Computed example of a mutant assay.
Amino acid sequence: MARRAFVTGSAGFIGFHLSQRLLAAGWEVLGLDGISDYYDVTLKRRRHEILAAEPGFRGVEGLLETPGLVRGLVETFRPDAIIHLAAQAGVRHSIDAPRSYVDSNLIGTFEILEAARAVPPQHMLLASTSSAYGANEVMPYAEVHKADHQMSFYAATKKATESMAHSYAHLYGLPTTMFRFFTVYGPWGRPDMALFKFVKAILYGEAIDVYNQGDMRRDFTYIDDLVEGIVRLIDAAPGTAPVGEFDSLSPVAPWRVVNIGNGAPVQLLDFVAAIEAATGQAAQKNLLPMQPGDVPATWADATLIEALIGALPRTDIRTGVQRFVDWYRTYYRA
């Protein structure tokens, strides 16, 4: 029988790509998405339409935080793996609309945990964020570093989900891996992310907002590389023995947190230069101060993930940006 994955956020950027990859590998996928209007719902529905064309996919539209919804789906589907990617995203939006982060990220994750307690999967994998490292200035960020001073409410809710999942892993023996993603980009990406905004503005001859006067670095991670990491980690459920002193494995639960990043931070202005090269157009730049809740740099230590599943592909920034620009032109021309 085909293996089964329950993927939340299946109409989202990462969930869409992951579901495609699992379906191609012969998995059955049950996808849940709230299709919220945080950004263009047309883009989300188009992603789900593409997945629905695959015989192994079933998509459900609904909010995570709806009492009993997730549990009912999990009890019927009985997945081998639960991959929880759905969340209210956005550092800056969390300043303006914090309640939505409580509902989706905290209450929604609680519903996932309760469903897993009722019908335990072989492995539960939940998305966190590199923003969880917050004010930590030690780089590259390693999973064993302290992460106690989050800089945004978004990051605070994601760090809270790590603790929530740890308690369930301890109490109920649920093998759990938390992902800390680092600035994911690529085709079908989110319109609220810098790459999407920059490409759209540059193609229309509009200025782009460059924060902290451009003195920022991000560990940009191409979507295919990230999905490769998630898929491999499905079969690397935490056990009882750490793989090294760098392992974040809990001493009291089958739980660990794992970075998934490119491991090579890029200067923001170099990122803009890659977009200029891909579009063939120069950017007009509004150089602005740092925004509240943001951090000047991110950089993933890849030691743990490579010990668990081997080296991942690392798409260079110019190749990845070119692929996004090619997709953007094709999608919006159509």
Score class of each variant (00 low, 15 high):
R3C: 06
F6A: 00
F6D: 00
I14V: 15
G15Y: 07
L22G: 05
L22K: 14
L30P: 11
G31D: 06
L32T: 13
D40S: 14
T42E: 11
K44P: 05
T76M: 04
R78N: 08
D80T: 00
I83C: 02
A87G: 08
Q88T: 03
Q88D: 12
V91I: 13
V91M: 14
D96L: 06
D96V: 14
V102P: 04
I107H: 02
A118N: 05
M124A: 09
L125M: 12
N136P: 13
M139W: 06
E143D: 11
F153Y: 14
A156Y: 06
K158Y: 09
M164W: 05
H166G: 05
Y168R: 03
Y168L: 09
H170D: 05
L171V: 08
T176F: 09
T176C: 02
M178F: 05
F182E: 01
F182L: 04
T183A: 14
T183N: 10
P187L: 01
P187T: 02
P191A: 07
M193Y: 15
V199C: 04
K200Y: 09
V210Q: 08
E228L: 03
G229E: 04
V231M: 10
R232W: 02
A237I: 00
G239W: 12
V243W: 14
G244F: 03
L249C: 06
L249R: 02
P251V: 01
A253L: 11
W255D: 12
V258H: 14
G263A: 02
L268I: 00
A273P: 01
A273L: 06
E276W: 01
N286E: 08
P289W: 10
P292I: 15
A297I: 14
A297L: 13
T298E: 09
D301W: 05
A307D: 08
I309A: 09
L312Y: 03
T315K: 12
D316M: 00
D316C: 07
R318K: 15
D326F: 01
D326S: 15
A334W: 04
